[in-house]
Amino acid sequence: MQDLVRMWSNTRMVVLSAVSAAVYAAVLIPFKAIPVIPGLTEIRPAAALPPLCSILFGPAGAWGSAFGNLIGDFFGMLGPGSIFGFLGNFLYGYIPYRAWRALSDQEPQPLSVTGWAKLLLAFLLGAGACALVIAWGVDLLGLAPFKALVNIILINNALMALLISPFLVAILYPMIKNFGLLATDLLEPAPRSRLSRVGLVLLIIGILGGLLAGNLLAFGALNPAGLGLPALSLPWLVSPFLLILLLGVVLA
């Protein structure tokens, strides 16, 4: 995770984070007028961009996605929910990069079915983490119920990440490589840790577990008292999965 700090000493990475943010915001803002849950989420074709920026620019894509979402909120929706929007979009723009590096040594230009499956898994993990963190945060603040938000964000992000992002990567990756602007060109990548696969497994457990447990608790299919869990509100019951997710990000 040191790359998240190291990138700020590289001028091109700083500019790339700003460019990613501006493109993300420029596509987000026109669709603010078509809300799904007003004030919290809207139709988001722009959700195809964080996975793309993540794969191309790594940490700069992560910061760019977070900044882009914040700029979108400056269009009139600035509130405490923006903090979790920032964190969720940061993970959406960072996890695909980390997950891909943990999954494969190849360039993200898959020629095989397995390669495509790995790329799509990396994108899906980012989409799931974003949905989980935002829904968890806004429920914690009492702004919107977890169950009303989590699946909408997940479906919105996952659809764009699966249907559009792979094609954007296929088209733009060779071009960016020619420009010499890939994260791997600008920042010396840290050698893959022996624990990166463990991190990936923790990521999957944290995201899948959090989404599943959150949904089951929210829709009443799981009774915390019946499981011997303390009588806490949903966000607190889901919190352990978020900790696993964060540990996964650190190790992957």
């Binding site: 700083v14 501006a22 915001a25 420029a26 803002i29 900044f67 700029i71 400056f74």
Partner: peptide, 13 residues
């Protein structure tokens, strides 16, 4: 550098 990147993003939109 972080606040500069944020400022630059606003200007680039």
């Amino acid at each position: 550098s972080i606040s500069f990147a944020l400022s630059l993003s606003f200007r680039l939109v």
